[in-house]
Simulated assay, not measured.
Amino acid sequence: MKEKLLTKEDLAEDHKKAVRGNTKTTREDWLAEAQRVLIEEGVDRVKVDRLANKLNVTRGGFYWFFKNRQDLLDILLANWKDSKNDPLTHTLKGKNKTPLDPLVRFIFTTIRERSYSPALDSAMRDWARTSNKTRRAVDLVDNRRISVLAKVYQGLGYEEEEAFIRARIQYFHQVGYYAMGVHESHEQRLHYLPIYFKQLTGFDLPKEALQGFMEE
């Protein structure tokens, strides 16, 4: 069903009503709610009327910030794809005291799930099953992360091809962990962490790194 087109007068009136308490809804409010629905319910449920209802505002306020639903979806995808917004890429490019530091940060970032959202990654992969544009974006992000990981492994002394394969193994392991819906307690993950680190990287996890993580 096509969305009803609104006149300028409708938009102006709805914009006045697009208020929650004393705070007007912002572009970021719409994007945040759209992302939440994308993660929890899938892209097909990201609809203007549903978002407006969840934000407790009229749908007219939406059109002050976005041309249409597709514009909103394009922005969600572009934000996720942008390297500036990718915590996994950032964590691999930080300042290092030792060559192992990027891998330690990478693993800890995925375990903490603070700046990095595996749920958002999974939602994008689900969306990519029905959208070629999203599929290309997912491929771009995956290849970028693997490329940066491979450079880290080269810095550890691995030849280019082996560094690339190790990067793929580590990344595919992480993606697969969430894709399979593995349920482990935080304590279990920390218990297995040194073993995973050794098997994935070929190096022992520095004890001070694990201790620092546990104390946070």
Rank of each mutant, 00 (worst) to 15 (best):
M1Q: 13
L5A: 10
L6P: 05
K8M: 12
D10E: 06
L11Q: 02
L11D: 02
E13G: 07
E13C: 08
D14V: 07
K16C: 10
G21S: 14
K24M: 15
D29F: 06
E33G: 11
A34Y: 05
Q35C: 09
R36K: 15
L38G: 03
L38Q: 04
E40P: 06
G42M: 05
R45S: 06
V46E: 00
V46N: 00
K47S: 03
V48F: 01
V48P: 01
N53M: 11
N53F: 08
K54A: 13
L55V: 12
G60T: 01
G61M: 08
F62H: 06
F65M: 09
R69N: 07
Q70A: 11
L72H: 03
L73Q: 06
D74F: 07
D74W: 11
D74S: 11
D74Q: 11
I75G: 10
I75M: 13
A78N: 14
N79F: 06
N79A: 10
W80G: 07
D82V: 08
K84S: 11
N85T: 03
P87E: 04
L88K: 00
T89P: 01
H90C: 01
H90K: 10
L92Y: 00
K93H: 07
N96A: 11
K97M: 08
P99T: 00
P99C: 00
P99N: 02
V104E: 10
V104L: 09
F106C: 04
R112Q: 13
Y116H: 05
S117V: 00
S117C: 00
A119L: 02
L120Q: 02
D121W: 10
A123Y: 05
A123M: 09
M124G: 03
D126P: 12
W127E: 06
N132E: 15
T134A: 08
R135Q: 08
R135L: 09
R136E: 10
L149Y: 00
A150L: 02
A150M: 02
K151I: 08
K151Y: 03
Y153G: 01
Q154V: 04
G155P: 09
G157H: 03
E160C: 09
E161R: 12
A163S: 03
A163E: 02
A167S: 05
A167G: 05
R168M: 09
H173C: 04
A179N: 12
M180C: 13
H183D: 15
E184Y: 13
S185Q: 06
H186L: 14
E187Q: 14
E187S: 15
Q188W: 11
P194A: 02
I195M: 13
F203G: 00
D204F: 01
L205T: 05
P206E: 02
L210Q: 08
M214H: 10
